[in-house]
Simulated scan of single mutants.
Amino acid sequence: MTGSEVPPAFRLAYVPGVTPTKWVRIWNERLPDTPLTLVGVPAAEAAGLLRDSGADAGFVRLPVDRTDLSAIPLYTETTVVVIPKDHAATAVEEMSAEDLAEETVLHPLDDTLDWERPPGRPALERPATTEDAVELVAAGVGLLVVPQSLARLYHRKDLTYRPLTGAPESRIALSWPEERTTDLVEEFIGIVRGRTVNSTRGRPPTPPQPKAARATKKSGGAPRKPAAGKTSRGGAGGANPKGGAKNPKGGAKRGKPRRGR
């Protein structure tokens, strides 16, 4: 590669709440010459970013329109309710949607949960973002229901959260434009799916070698020929063909001379 050439880069989008650190680390170990660039994007804009070539792949929240986007579901998040630390609900391990019936529950415009009908009583206005809603919870305006990763992302010391049963859950997926499934995208899919660096996926199988070739490879050269005067069993050329003992001096055995008549 000349100095004027720019190495290929891989752009990875991710929505709030997703922590791609582990996968980025593995990528950097396996492809140190291919930089990975992280692109943060709001959940509602992630699909559009991928379609507009703003990233090669991305961690998104389902559902996404799979007409032109491929998606591999990865995990489902626990849904929690964010409450002040002095709220009465801190006395329980978990809450249900019915427990919120008399509570004011904030419903931000960027809510990622697919509610048929949000629980509790609606606030007078919907906060613009989840982060804004967290600030309102701290101010005592109401409670907030979010995926657990967002409760952690916008954590405050004066707030806590409890798991909420009977509520929708948010699923995280790896998505990319189907028509742009490049080699780098395939490489990242393998990392996310846990394939090892020695995975044979996509590699042609090694053809079996003949025995002679394997023997040559192990010895580092051509098969050895028997030395001159040696048999294939490694014995001396003067071996008795009938299997008898050889003359200790190596000569042929002599009989007594015949007398002439």
Score class of each variant (00 low, 15 high):
Arg233Ser: 15
Pro32Asp: 08
Ala128Thr: 13
Val81Leu: 00
Thr196His: 10
Asp86Cys: 11
Pro8Gly: 01
Asp65His: 09
Lys85Val: 13
Pro207Val: 11
Val134Met: 11
Ser219Val: 06
Ile189Arg: 15
Ile72Cys: 08
Asp52Arg: 15
Thr130His: 05
Trp115His: 00
Glu169Gln: 15
Thr76Phe: 02
Gly120Cys: 04
Gly238Val: 06
Gly220Ala: 10
Ala128Asn: 01
Pro147Arg: 06
Pro8Leu: 08
Pro122Ala: 04
Lys211Val: 15
Met1Gln: 11
Pro163Arg: 06
Phe188Pro: 05
Ala88Asp: 12
Trp23Ile: 03
Ala91Arg: 13
Gly238Cys: 09
Lys85Asp: 09
Leu31Lys: 15
Asp110Ile: 13
Phe59Trp: 12
Ala239Leu: 07
Arg152Cys: 06
Pro210Asn: 01
Val24Leu: 03
Ala151Asn: 04
Gly220Thr: 05
Pro147Gly: 04
Gly54Asp: 07
Gly229Ala: 05
Arg254Glu: 14
Lys253Asn: 11
Asp132Phe: 02
Asp132Gln: 07
Pro205Phe: 07
Lys256Cys: 04
Pro122His: 08
Ala46Met: 02
Gly260Gln: 07
Asp111Pro: 10
Ala97Gln: 07
Glu93Gln: 13
Trp115Ile: 02
Thr78Lys: 06
Glu179Asp: 14
Asp114Glu: 12
Thr129Val: 03
Gly54Lys: 10
Ile72Asp: 04
Asp114Met: 13
Glu125Met: 07
Val146Phe: 02
His107Cys: 07
Asp65Met: 00
Gly244Met: 02
Gly120Ile: 01
Thr112Ile: 12
Thr90Cys: 11
Thr196Gly: 15
Ala55Lys: 09
Thr231Asp: 07
Ser170Arg: 13
Leu109Asn: 07
Lys218Arg: 11
Ala57Leu: 08
Ala212Glu: 13
Ala47His: 09
Glu93Asp: 14
Gly202Phe: 03
Ala133Met: 01
Pro35His: 06
Ser199Ala: 13
Thr200Phe: 05
Ala123Pro: 03
Pro35Met: 01
Lys217Phe: 09
Ser70His: 12
Glu187Met: 12
Val24His: 02
Pro177Met: 05
Ser175Gln: 07
Lys217Asn: 05
Ala97Ile: 14
Ala139Tyr: 01
Gly221Ser: 15
Leu153Gln: 14
Arg66Lys: 13
Arg121Cys: 05
Thr21Arg: 13
Arg156Ile: 05
Trp115Gly: 07
Pro8Val: 05
Ala227Cys: 00
Ala139Met: 11
Val197Asn: 04
Pro35Tyr: 08
Pro257Asp: 01
Asp68Gly: 01
Ala91Val: 15
Thr112Arg: 10
Ile172Gly: 03
Gly40His: 05
Gly48Gln: 05
Ala9Asp: 12
Val6His: 03
Arg214Gln: 11
Arg195Ser: 04
Gly166His: 02
Gln148Trp: 10
Gly140Trp: 09
Pro119Ser: 00
Leu100His: 02
